[in-house]
Amino acid sequence: MGITIRNLEHIYMEGSPFETKSLSGINLEIQDGEFVGLIGHTGSGKSTLIQHLNGLLKPQKGEIIVNGISTLDKDADLKKLRSEVGLVFQYPEHQLFEETVYKDVAFGPKNQGLSEDEVRARVTEALHYVGLDESMFDKSPFELSGGQKRRVAIAGVLAMRPKTLILDEPAAGLDPASREEILTQIRALYLNSKMTVILVSHSMEDVARIAGRIIVMNQGKIDMDGKVAEVFGEAERLRAMGLDVPQVSRLVKALKERGIPIDENIYTIEKAKAAIMLLMKDKREA
C-alpha cells in the first residue's frame, strides 16, 4: 500500500531562538517494492524525514499515511508500524547493548512478542543475510570490528522482518571493502525479498548503482524526484546544490562531448567498462 506524505513540515525547537525549519512542503508517494535513494547535502533534512516514516516524529503540519494508516491517528498502533517500517539509524552500532550478538539481534523480534522458536529463526536468518555465521552468535558485540558491529545492528532491524527497510547512511565510515559488501547485501536483500527499501546516502556512486528512483532533498524541500537517469541527467542542478553526479557519469559525458558514441545514461563503473570495451572492440574490428 506504500507511503504517502502530504504537505509535511517540521520545525525543530519551535519558538526558541534556535528554531530550524528542517522540512517544508514535502509531498511524496512511495509504492511498495520500490528502491528509493534519498540524497541531499548535510542538514538537508533526510534524517528528519525518515524518522517521520515510522512515527518517531509526528507531523507538525501535513500528514503521513503508511500502509493505509495515518501516523497522526490516535489509535495508530505504533509498535506495529515500527515493525513494518524498519529504520536503521546513522551509526547504528552505537545502539548495541546486549551481552551477545544473538541477544542483541533478538531484541526487536522479542519486542514483537514472538515465540522463542520464531525469534531464533528470524535472528539466524537476519544474521545470515548480513553475512555473519553461527560462530559469531555468542560473541559480545563490543569485541567486533566496526563493520561487523554495523552489520549486527542492521540485522537487529532485519530480524523484525519489516515490509519497508530504511537505512540512513549504512556505509558511512566503513572501508571500501566493507562498504561494497554491505551495499551488495542490501541489494541482494532487496532482490530476494519483496521489501521496499529507502537508502539515505551522500555517495552518488552507491545510490546510482543500486537505487531505481532518486529523491534529492535541498534545504528541507524535495528538489528532484525521478529515475536515476533523469536525476543524474541534470548535473548542473545537482552541482548547484553542492552535490555531484557519479564520477563515471562525468567521464562518459566527457567522452560523448569528444564525439565518441557512448550511451550517456551510464552511472556505474561496470556498465561503463562494458561499454568502453565494446567500443574498443568495434574500433579494432573496423
Binding site: 515510522n54 518517531l56 515500527r82 515493525s83 539509524f89 545502539q95 526487536g108 523484525m160
Partner: peptide
C-alpha cells in the same frame, strides 16, 4: 531511545520493574 523504539522498545508502559528493565537498552549504549 529513538533507535531502540524503532526496534519496538517501549519506555512508557508497565510496572516500575518493567520500566526500569526497559531502560537497560538505553543506559548501556
Amino acid at each position: 531511545s529513538k533507535a531502540q523504539q524503532a526496534r519496538g522498545a517501549d519506555f512508557g508502559s508497565g510496572g516500575i520493574i518493567q520500566r526500569a528493565k526497559a531502560l537497560v537498552p538505553m543506559l548501556v549504549p
